[in-house]
Design a protein around this nucleic acid. Sequence first.
DNA 1: AATTTTTTCGTTAACGTAAACGAAAAATGA
DNA 2: TCATTTTTCGTTTACGTTAACGAAAAAATT
Lengths: 353, 353
Amino acid sequence: MEKKNSGTVGVKEIARLANVSIGTVDRVLNNRVGVSEKTKAKILKIIQELDYQPNIFARRLASKKKLRFATLIPQVSDETTYWEAPLHGIKQAANEIKDFGIEVVTFFFDQNNKESFSDSASKIAVGEFDGILMAPMFEEESIAFIELCNHKKIPLVFINSDIPGYNNLCYIGPNLYQSGYLSAHIVHYLSPVDKKTLIVNISKEIDLHHHLLRKEEGFRNYFEQHGSTNKLTKIDIRQTDYPHIKQKLSDQLKQDDYNIVFVTNSRVATVAKYFEEHKVEGIKLIGYDFLEDNIHYLRNKTIDFLICQKPQEQGYRGVMSLYYHLVLNTHIEKEQFMPIDIITRENYQYYSN
Amino acid sequence: MEKKNSGTVGVKEIARLANVSIGTVDRVLNNRVGVSEKTKAKILKIIQELDYQPNIFARRLASKKKLRFATLIPQVSDETTYWEAPLHGIKQAANEIKDFGIEVVTFFFDQNNKESFSDSASKIAVGEFDGILMAPMFEEESIAFIELCNHKKIPLVFINSDIPGYNNLCYIGPNLYQSGYLSAHIVHYLSPVDKKTLIVNISKEIDLHHHLLRKEEGFRNYFEQHGSTNKLTKIDIRQTDYPHIKQKLSDQLKQDDYNIVFVTNSRVATVAKYFEEHKVEGIKLIGYDFLEDNIHYLRNKTIDFLICQKPQEQGYRGVMSLYYHLVLNTHIEKEQFMPIDIITRENYQYYSN
DNA sequence: AATTTTTTCGTTAACGTAAACGAAAAATGA
DNA sequence: TCATTTTTCGTTTACGTTAACGAAAAAATT
């Protein structure tokens, strides 16, 4: 007794109700030109009333439209394998949407070389892409590129770090301040009163330094806000090779009896290596990122906690956001903060990046 | 100069190469009857060589095949809102795959009533479903139903708790032992030596008690394995109403000066309520699950840590597993353990269930 | 050998949308 | 007014697969 049950309202039905042809309906659906305001309004009204949802399969089958996305992230290096994860996420997303006629082309740059960033950026610029995902590590160079894209009206998503005010689609990544703040709370749990904490910053000058500073700020603010009696010391290490780090650590650890060491990035494994070699014990060690080296030291109890922010998902969601925006034109959340995951040797096996 | 570039090999091309009609090709693709071994082999060979991938859009557009999944989980009750999350995940998955011609029908039961479970199960049994997701809380009743399904060759997935040896597709849920073990480690961090910990078990007799016991086992084993000097006490509370719990807690807390209270399930909010009302301070409180009440007490610092195991994702992945198995016939991992997430008041805002 | 049954296969019309093409209608210009 | 341009719209084919229908070929039965 029902009407055509399986809620199959299509262009045909709409056309019938509006007394027009499916061609006209198609025109307003894809808002192309060539239909009078009057009939357009009429059709739109019917579409509204019917809550018409186009059949994505028929649409994809009939359409020969192709989109091309570009991604620009650091290449994986000996220095850090961090960027493997976002790349993996990007590829996963690319694979999922390739059937929808979307091609994803990956570009890379060297984290220690601003020029390599600009080079890749200009390659993308001439590549006629419909959407771009990037890790805007170098502020100046990024902004130049961003403005170019804005001018060409190409949607842009940032992952891993933000340049506030400049992203035009969304930012997907950590809330750095908050993750430092969380680390401080853990530290506080570990040593409620009168303990000595060392903050270790390992990064070359060229790295986006504010990245680490934001974490440190969150970390320090926790202690201030909680009137902690802990004593904070900070050390900056500007070379990333082991001998250098070893020397610096050695000097520093002589100066005081620290209870806790907080490393502001993924280089915590290097500190762990030092601890192991020099049989440093009784110092709790906290750092960042789910990397093979780090997990190794987490397992053998040198590292106590790792903070991790789903790097793979950042890549995945970044690409998918472009897709949602350009194909499905869904609303995209401007700031998508990743969860702040706490990894210990009891739960790392189950962690999904 | 290329051949038809966009790698569009379809049935038509295959048919041409094999000197048959597309109808015949379609028959071997969907391995239907009515094609001789010889031509079948010939076509299969060509399909292999071309690495033919059917166009899922055209397939879906032309096919009128429908599948029906049933889900059977506890209803959300005043007692606990835990099951909202898995249900939400189920609905999310249902929404994603409904365009592929799959209908998901949800059934519920009362956690305190075994009969309600059996009732719903028999409704499902007569409902001609192609796949079933369930939370097998009552062992005996579940097994009866499972055997029925096995006989009918209906794929079955379990979420939240397992009945080892009985699932026929997969189990998706927590590793209970490990999550108890992790909790113990946190406790250990909080109070390295000579502290007193109270384990609180709140659940009616009828609940799947082994659920909680597994956690407790993990918890205790940690302490044993690490030769902890902590003292463990346990209390079982068999009624879930506040007055009763209040009384029990009150009695217990008089007996000793506990440093830490570990609640083995989501009822930790009730304990927190007691703490707040009676101005209990200085006792660290750890419990389970990302529920509104719990978050409330996490925020106001009554609860210190919540362990959470992505209940929503359990529902989501459960349904998707059925889909992957039946539609795409992908390989499905037999045991899919959820991450063990540590939630504090610094990261709960970013937690995604 | 003629007939019937069974097996094997080809043809064709959907599925819902996109988009090219050209016809009709309206607007503009002289 | 008539010719020309512009706007609006209808018709039709195509996308790759499914599946119903029935024809042809092969096998089995008389």
